[in-house]
Design a protein around this nucleic acid. Structure first.
Lengths: 104, 104
DNA sequence: ACCTCGTATCAAGATTATTTGATATGATAT
DNA sequence: ATATCATATCAAATAATCTTGATACGAGGT
Protein backbone atom coordinates (compact mmCIF):
# COMPACT_ATOMS: atom_id res chain seq x y z
CA UNK A 1 0.00 0.00 0.00
CA UNK A 2 1.23 3.44 -0.83
CA UNK A 3 -0.16 6.53 0.82
CA UNK A 4 -0.07 9.92 -0.83
CA UNK A 5 2.36 10.93 1.91
CA UNK A 6 4.85 8.31 0.84
CA UNK A 7 4.61 9.56 -2.72
CA UNK A 8 5.36 13.08 -1.59
CA UNK A 9 8.18 12.01 0.70
CA UNK A 10 9.79 10.26 -2.24
CA UNK A 11 10.00 13.53 -4.16
CA UNK A 12 11.79 15.45 -1.43
CA UNK A 13 14.15 12.61 -0.52
CA UNK A 14 16.11 13.79 -3.53
CA UNK A 15 17.20 16.85 -1.58
CA UNK A 16 17.79 15.19 1.77
CA UNK A 17 21.30 13.86 1.34
CA UNK A 18 24.57 15.68 0.79
CA UNK A 19 25.77 13.29 -1.88
CA UNK A 20 22.58 13.76 -3.86
CA UNK A 21 22.83 17.52 -3.61
CA UNK A 22 26.38 17.26 -4.97
CA UNK A 23 25.09 15.14 -7.85
CA UNK A 24 22.35 17.64 -8.62
CA UNK A 25 24.92 20.41 -8.56
CA UNK A 26 26.96 18.57 -11.17
CA UNK A 27 23.86 17.94 -13.28
CA UNK A 28 23.07 21.65 -13.21
CA UNK A 29 26.05 21.92 -15.53
CA UNK A 30 24.23 19.79 -18.07
CA UNK A 31 23.62 16.13 -18.81
CA UNK A 32 26.35 13.85 -17.48
CA UNK A 33 27.10 10.22 -17.92
CA UNK A 34 27.68 8.04 -14.89
CA UNK A 35 31.39 7.81 -15.60
CA UNK A 36 31.78 11.57 -15.16
CA UNK A 37 29.82 11.56 -11.91
CA UNK A 38 31.96 8.69 -10.66
CA UNK A 39 35.21 10.52 -11.15
CA UNK A 40 33.94 13.79 -9.68
CA UNK A 41 32.39 12.32 -6.57
CA UNK A 42 33.97 10.51 -3.67
CA UNK A 43 31.72 7.54 -4.13
CA UNK A 44 31.85 3.98 -5.46
CA UNK A 45 29.94 2.53 -8.38
CA UNK A 46 27.27 0.79 -6.35
CA UNK A 47 26.86 3.86 -4.18
CA UNK A 48 26.30 6.02 -7.22
CA UNK A 49 23.75 3.54 -8.53
CA UNK A 50 21.95 3.64 -5.18
CA UNK A 51 21.66 7.43 -5.16
CA UNK A 52 20.77 7.72 -8.82
CA UNK A 53 17.89 5.35 -8.29
CA UNK A 54 16.52 7.57 -5.54
CA UNK A 55 16.97 10.67 -7.70
CA UNK A 56 15.23 9.09 -10.68
CA UNK A 57 12.38 7.78 -8.54
CA UNK A 58 11.87 11.26 -7.14
CA UNK A 59 11.29 12.49 -10.66
CA UNK A 60 13.93 15.20 -10.30
CA UNK A 61 16.39 13.36 -12.54
CA UNK A 62 15.79 11.44 -15.73
CA UNK A 63 18.08 8.88 -17.27
CA UNK A 64 18.81 7.93 -20.83
CA UNK A 65 20.59 4.81 -22.05
CA UNK A 66 23.10 5.22 -24.81
CA UNK A 67 24.70 1.91 -25.55
CA UNK A 68 26.46 0.80 -22.40
CA UNK A 69 26.36 4.17 -20.76
CA UNK A 70 23.64 5.85 -18.77
CA UNK A 71 23.26 9.59 -19.02
CA UNK A 72 21.53 11.62 -16.37
CA UNK A 73 20.02 15.06 -16.42
CA UNK A 74 17.73 17.17 -14.32
CA UNK A 75 14.11 16.75 -15.35
CA UNK A 76 12.43 20.09 -15.88
CA UNK A 77 9.04 18.46 -15.60
CA UNK A 78 9.91 16.66 -12.37
CA UNK A 79 11.46 19.76 -10.88
CA UNK A 80 8.43 21.83 -11.74
CA UNK A 81 6.21 19.22 -10.14
CA UNK A 82 8.30 19.27 -6.98
CA UNK A 83 8.05 23.05 -6.86
CA UNK A 84 4.30 22.94 -7.32
CA UNK A 85 3.98 20.26 -4.67
CA UNK A 86 6.05 22.24 -2.19
CA UNK A 87 3.84 25.25 -2.79
CA UNK A 88 0.75 23.13 -2.30
CA UNK A 89 1.99 21.60 0.93
CA UNK A 90 2.70 25.01 2.42
CA UNK A 91 -0.27 27.06 1.24
CA UNK A 92 -3.20 27.54 3.63
CA UNK A 93 -6.51 26.13 2.49
CA UNK A 94 -8.53 29.22 3.18
CA UNK A 95 -8.08 32.38 5.16
CA UNK A 96 -10.70 31.41 7.72
CA UNK A 97 -8.69 31.07 10.91
CA UNK A 98 -10.26 29.37 13.85
CA UNK A 99 -8.83 30.18 17.22
CA UNK A 100 -11.00 27.94 19.32
CA UNK A 101 -8.33 26.06 21.16
CA UNK A 102 -6.99 25.56 24.68
CA UNK A 103 -9.33 28.22 26.12
CA UNK A 104 -6.95 31.03 26.88
CA UNK B 1 31.34 22.45 10.81
CA UNK B 2 28.29 22.99 8.69
CA UNK B 3 28.41 22.73 4.94
CA UNK B 4 25.93 24.53 2.72
CA UNK B 5 24.61 21.09 1.81
CA UNK B 6 23.66 20.38 5.40
CA UNK B 7 21.81 23.67 5.53
CA UNK B 8 19.86 22.78 2.43
CA UNK B 9 19.16 19.24 3.60
CA UNK B 10 17.69 20.69 6.79
CA UNK B 11 15.08 22.61 4.81
CA UNK B 12 13.78 19.60 2.88
CA UNK B 13 13.82 17.26 5.87
CA UNK B 14 10.53 18.94 6.74
CA UNK B 15 8.86 17.11 3.86
CA UNK B 16 10.58 13.75 4.26
CA UNK B 17 8.45 12.15 6.92
CA UNK B 18 4.79 11.14 6.84
CA UNK B 19 4.06 12.49 10.30
CA UNK B 20 5.48 15.86 9.40
CA UNK B 21 3.44 15.99 6.20
CA UNK B 22 0.36 15.27 8.30
CA UNK B 23 1.31 18.09 10.64
CA UNK B 24 1.81 20.50 7.74
CA UNK B 25 -1.56 19.46 6.37
CA UNK B 26 -3.19 20.37 9.67
CA UNK B 27 -1.33 23.68 9.77
CA UNK B 28 -2.62 24.50 6.30
CA UNK B 29 -5.92 24.96 8.06
CA UNK B 30 -4.43 27.79 10.10
CA UNK B 31 -2.38 28.26 13.24
CA UNK B 32 -2.75 25.42 15.72
CA UNK B 33 -1.64 24.94 19.27
CA UNK B 34 0.23 21.80 20.22
CA UNK B 35 -2.76 20.45 22.11
CA UNK B 36 -4.81 20.34 18.92
CA UNK B 37 -2.04 18.63 16.98
CA UNK B 38 -1.71 16.08 19.77
CA UNK B 39 -5.32 15.04 19.65
CA UNK B 40 -5.47 14.90 15.85
CA UNK B 41 -2.31 12.88 15.35
CA UNK B 42 -1.46 9.38 16.46
CA UNK B 43 1.62 10.55 18.31
CA UNK B 44 2.83 11.17 21.84
CA UNK B 45 3.90 14.45 23.39
CA UNK B 46 7.63 13.87 23.08
CA UNK B 47 7.20 12.65 19.54
CA UNK B 48 5.35 15.79 18.59
CA UNK B 49 8.05 17.90 20.19
CA UNK B 50 10.67 16.02 18.17
CA UNK B 51 8.94 16.62 14.86
CA UNK B 52 8.03 20.23 15.60
CA UNK B 53 11.67 20.98 16.30
CA UNK B 54 12.64 19.64 12.89
CA UNK B 55 9.86 21.62 11.22
CA UNK B 56 10.82 24.84 12.97
CA UNK B 57 14.51 24.35 12.19
CA UNK B 58 13.64 23.86 8.55
CA UNK B 59 12.08 27.31 8.56
CA UNK B 60 8.81 25.96 7.15
CA UNK B 61 7.02 26.36 10.47
CA UNK B 62 7.20 29.12 13.04
CA UNK B 63 6.19 28.91 16.66
CA UNK B 64 4.72 31.40 19.06
CA UNK B 65 4.51 31.10 22.82
CA UNK B 66 1.30 32.16 24.49
CA UNK B 67 1.46 31.49 28.16
CA UNK B 68 2.03 27.82 28.65
CA UNK B 69 0.99 26.89 25.15
CA UNK B 70 2.94 26.88 21.93
CA UNK B 71 1.19 27.77 18.72
CA UNK B 72 2.50 26.71 15.34
CA UNK B 73 1.84 27.97 11.86
CA UNK B 74 3.32 27.66 8.42
CA UNK B 75 5.89 30.35 7.75
CA UNK B 76 5.24 32.10 4.47
CA UNK B 77 8.78 33.41 4.43
CA UNK B 78 10.31 30.02 5.12
CA UNK B 79 8.12 28.34 2.55
CA UNK B 80 9.02 30.89 -0.07
CA UNK B 81 12.68 30.36 0.70
CA UNK B 82 12.31 26.61 0.32
CA UNK B 83 10.58 27.10 -3.02
CA UNK B 84 13.31 29.42 -4.22
CA UNK B 85 15.97 27.01 -3.04
CA UNK B 86 14.34 24.07 -4.81
CA UNK B 87 14.22 26.10 -7.99
CA UNK B 88 17.87 27.02 -7.59
CA UNK B 89 18.99 23.46 -6.99
CA UNK B 90 17.26 22.25 -10.14
CA UNK B 91 17.98 25.04 -12.60
CA UNK B 92 20.89 24.59 -15.03
CA UNK B 93 23.70 27.10 -14.72
CA UNK B 94 23.89 27.97 -18.37
CA UNK B 95 22.65 26.47 -21.60
CA UNK B 96 26.15 25.51 -22.73
CA UNK B 97 26.02 21.74 -22.81
CA UNK B 98 29.23 19.81 -23.11
CA UNK B 99 28.99 16.31 -24.44
CA UNK B 100 32.63 15.39 -24.21
CA UNK B 101 32.33 12.24 -22.20
CA UNK B 102 32.95 8.52 -22.55
CA UNK B 103 33.80 8.87 -26.27
CA UNK B 104 30.80 7.29 -27.98
C1' DA C 1 6.88 29.18 48.39
C1' DC C 2 4.18 25.16 46.18
C1' DC C 3 1.48 22.75 42.70
C1' DT C 4 -0.05 21.96 38.03
C1' DC C 5 0.26 21.76 33.31
C1' DG C 6 2.68 22.18 28.77
C1' DT C 7 6.92 21.48 26.62
C1' DA C 8 11.79 19.97 26.01
C1' DT C 9 15.30 16.75 26.70
C1' DC C 10 17.33 12.37 27.67
C1' DA C 11 18.25 7.47 27.03
C1' DA C 12 17.12 2.97 25.15
C1' DG C 13 15.28 0.44 21.62
C1' DA C 14 13.34 -0.09 17.00
C1' DT C 15 13.35 1.10 12.44
C1' DT C 16 15.17 2.94 8.27
C1' DA C 17 19.11 4.80 5.33
C1' DT C 18 23.56 4.59 3.70
C1' DT C 19 27.96 2.46 2.65
C1' DT C 20 30.86 -1.20 0.92
C1' DG C 21 32.39 -5.17 -1.51
C1' DA C 22 30.86 -9.17 -4.10
C1' DT C 23 28.09 -10.93 -7.58
C1' DA C 24 24.58 -10.76 -11.34
C1' DT C 25 22.61 -8.69 -15.40
C1' DG C 26 22.72 -6.56 -19.94
C1' DA C 27 24.74 -4.52 -23.88
C1' DT C 28 28.52 -4.28 -27.10
C1' DA C 29 32.33 -5.99 -29.54
C1' DT C 30 35.40 -9.73 -31.28
C1' DA D 1 29.87 -18.04 -28.32
C1' DT D 2 33.14 -15.51 -25.31
C1' DA D 3 35.13 -11.36 -23.38
C1' DT D 4 34.65 -6.84 -21.73
C1' DC D 5 32.65 -3.01 -19.74
C1' DA D 6 28.80 -0.34 -17.40
C1' DT D 7 25.25 -0.78 -14.34
C1' DA D 8 22.09 -3.08 -11.01
C1' DT D 9 21.31 -5.91 -7.19
C1' DC D 10 22.41 -8.35 -3.06
C1' DA D 11 23.98 -8.95 1.68
C1' DA D 12 26.33 -7.39 5.69
C1' DA D 13 27.99 -3.66 8.42
C1' DT D 14 27.45 0.92 9.92
C1' DA D 15 25.11 5.17 10.63
C1' DA D 16 21.17 8.05 11.01
C1' DT D 17 16.42 8.65 12.17
C1' DC D 18 12.27 7.80 14.71
C1' DT D 19 9.61 6.10 18.73
C1' DT D 20 8.65 5.62 23.53
C1' DG D 21 8.60 6.35 28.36
C1' DA D 22 10.90 8.79 32.09
C1' DT D 23 12.55 12.94 33.77
C1' DA D 24 13.72 17.96 33.80
C1' DC D 25 12.55 22.67 32.83
C1' DG D 26 9.47 26.87 32.76
C1' DA D 27 5.40 29.54 33.07
C1' DG D 28 1.03 30.36 35.54
C1' DG D 29 -1.94 29.99 39.17
C1' DT D 30 -2.99 29.26 44.35
Amino acid sequence: METVYEEHVKVFKAFCDEKRLRILELLRGGEKCACVLLEQLDIGQSGLSYHMKILVESGIVESRQEGKWTHYKISEKGSDYAGTLLKELTTPYSVIEENNCCKK
